[in-house]
Design a protein around this nucleic acid. Sequence first.
DNA 1: AAATGTTTACTCTGTA
DNA 2: TACAGAGTAAACATTT
Length: 230
Amino acid sequence: MPRPGKSSYSDQKPPYSYISLTAMAIQHSAEKMLPLSDIYKFIMERFPYYREHTQRWQNSLRHNLSFNDCFIKIPRRPDQPGKGSFWALHPDCGDMFENGSFLRRRKRFKVLRPDQLSNMVSSVWPHVGVMDSMASMPVSHEYGPFGVPMKALCHPPGQTMPAVPVPIKPTPALPPVSAISALTVNSSQICPSTLPASSSLLEQTPPTPSEGKSALHSVRSALHSVPVHS
DNA sequence: AAATGTTTACTCTGTA
DNA sequence: TACAGAGTAAACATTT
């Protein structure tokens, strides 16, 4: 029997659903899309809780990627060898966590037919649908993998994701609790090409809906003056 | 073979 | 109380 009230810091399950953890990882990446293995890596680096029972939670996470329409799968180009596809966020995923709780989403997405999804992806990421003819795509910092414009991969202001904790090195001695609860929102990570320098916005992990709401408000305030991308 | 992706089924919990 | 979302397990298919 586990002793009540006697849990180490790594025993504590983070107050995030798999959806928000995955969205956090994708949002934190430079190209706003990640292969499955990198999503695993992101989560394990930041949340020691997920360094154990990997088969269990990774199965759940894969289930979430396939099952939830807020994630879209972007295939690798033939000249980008590797296993699996890249995963990105549905462009409408912005205010999923509007209610301030990262454990429960506010709404589901419209279910799209395959042709609708294809149209949506090619309208948001114009180059994805024509990958076969992208061999001569000019190399530019304006573009992410597959020539997907970085601008298109950025979320408009007001569309916020959970703050991203700093990575925690897997050292034998566990870091203090403050190391993981001190969250920093780096707005340039949300949209590196256009947003201003990072600012530390959150002091604590939002463990409750009301605190989460407050944190979201802070993020929104900071992003308020950022120009809208078209 | 292992990693990745899909689907189904079930339980639990929060919300309207 | 019904419903929707989240978590988990498991079986199976596909890809590298």
